[in-house]
Amino acid sequence: MSSLILITSANGNQGKRLVPKLLASGHHVRACVRTAASAEQLRALGAQQVLMGDLADPAFIAQAMKGVSSVYHIGPTLHQEERAMGFAMIDAAKAEGVGHFVFSSVLHAIASDLIQHEIKRDIEEHLLSSGLEYTILQPANYMLPSRMKAVFEEGVFRLAWALEKRQSMVDLGDVTEVVARVLSDPERHWGATYELVGPGRFNAYEIGAVASNVVGREIKVERFDVEVFVRERFGNLEPDALQHMLRMNLAIAAHYSNHDFVGNSNVLSFLLGRPATTFDEFVRKEYANFRKALSD
């Protein structure tokens, strides 16, 4: 029997990959987005219901929650109201009697010197205390196609923190495959907290070496200035929002410059029923897409 699943921030990195998978499994999807452009993109993917509004608005959250069986809450990371939104989503789900609340958290949410981790840790605690059936997913840093753009076009990989520090990463296709499985078989995953981590641990030089091997030429690595990046990219934000964005990004750069950010891929491979995607496989797939786009 099909179910109605609510997905927040539905046109982001996860949502636009997850929606087609849920639809293919026979679920009905209600997608929450902020803009008309995002709404159109979700409708093009086949989402039966698309709601446009602000997760900071309790009335919008209550409307979105009506009649859903499960919720997948992807908080708007780097938003200054992310904690309050997460709390409100959980409270609304409880009031509506939602059967399963799945939360997209972050690997090592206990690292409280990272502002966005502390926020997600607080939301995890609120969910644990809610009485709802829940699943918490804690992905590592995403293998993002956007980060490969400069690699393929300019021959450089750029990072915001110390180049010698290691990080674990995870493929978004793997993450959304797990999410679809969790939402399709909720009782099996009630009460679970899963770390979602791909194979390997890489510093910037090792990332550059993998990319060099794939593209067949040397890929340089560079560290960029976080404050300059944030002010250039998000300079149109309101002053308070810009300062929040700046504080969070500076905290990320500082933490990752002082500590490795690593995990273990066993749980992800167990959930997938296959080996998790490697970084080499990811780069090869993205390079093939890049070359195809050039030839089209």
Rank of each mutant, 00 (worst) to 15 (best):
A59D: 14
D57F: 06
I207G: 07
D280M: 07
G12C: 03
M169F: 14
A36T: 13
E82A: 00
Y194E: 08
K292D: 11
D260A: 10
L183R: 03
S129Y: 09
H244L: 07
K285Q: 08
M89R: 01
L42T: 08
A180T: 04
R166M: 04
L237K: 12
M169E: 02
E153T: 13
L51A: 06
M52Q: 15
D240E: 13
E218K: 15
A37E: 15
R121Y: 04
L114S: 05
P20K: 12
H244Q: 04
V230R: 03
N258F: 10
E154Y: 08
F282D: 03
G15V: 04
L237W: 11
G97S: 05
L272P: 02
N203C: 10
Y256M: 15
F157Q: 01
A47M: 06
V214M: 12
I115C: 00
L183F: 05
V221S: 12
V156P: 12
T135K: 07
A192R: 14
S295P: 12
T278Y: 02
K149M: 11
G12K: 05
S9Y: 01
G216Q: 05
Q167F: 05
R188C: 02
F270G: 14
M245A: 12
G12Q: 03
L23C: 01
F229S: 13
R121F: 05
K16P: 09
Y205I: 04
A64K: 03
K94W: 10
E154C: 10
V71S: 05
S257D: 03
D280W: 06
P275W: 02
L246N: 03
I90H: 03
F270C: 11
H108A: 09
A56N: 14
W161Q: 10
A10T: 05
Y194I: 04
R233L: 08
D174Q: 10
D122L: 02
T8K: 01
G235F: 03
F103P: 01
A56R: 13
E40W: 07
H117Y: 01
M65W: 04
Q116L: 13
S257N: 10
R83W: 00
V170N: 11
L132N: 09
L183C: 09
S269Y: 03
H79Y: 09
Q138P: 06
L6R: 02
V170Y: 06
D225V: 08
T77M: 08
L6M: 04
T193E: 11
L172G: 15
S105A: 10
E222N: 11
A160P: 12
R291Q: 15
L294N: 13
T35W: 01
K149F: 12
H126L: 02
Y72C: 07
M52C: 15
S146R: 09
I123F: 00
D113G: 03
G200I: 00
E195R: 12
V71G: 02
S3M: 10
N258S: 15
D57T: 08
I136M: 10
L144I: 12
A276W: 02
A192S: 15
A109N: 06
S69T: 10
H108M: 03
E40R: 11
N249I: 00
A209K: 14
A293T: 09
